[in-house]
Amino acid sequence: MKLTGPLTRVLSVFLADVSAWRYGYDLMKAARLPSGTLYPMLARLQEQGLVTAQWEQHSADAGGRPPRKYYQLTGEGVRVARLELAQTRTATRRTTDGTTRPVRGITP
């Protein structure tokens, strides 16, 4: 899985509460992504078996609105997401630590 910035954000949102079911607009807002980026990503994750989806059951508090489709990470999705995000964090830390910074007052 190639971890891009938007994918990292989506996985982080999912991992914030792995038991929560999230609908598209909720994810868009939380991950600050447009619909044209989010839905292809969700479709890809679903194809890979990392995300599962289900339709909302009709309930009284829905207020007559149409049922939404909700998404949640699968068990495998949680495992892979945690692993990938941890690896990314480690790689970022390593890059940051290895960077030399110019000392103030000394011009090269």
């Binding site: 598209g24 909720d26 149409p66």
Partner: peptide
């Protein structure tokens, strides 16, 4: 279509 149109009331 049902999925995407259902998000409009939320927006």
């Amino acid at each position: 279509f049902r999925e995407w149109a259902a998000e409009l009331p939320a927006i």
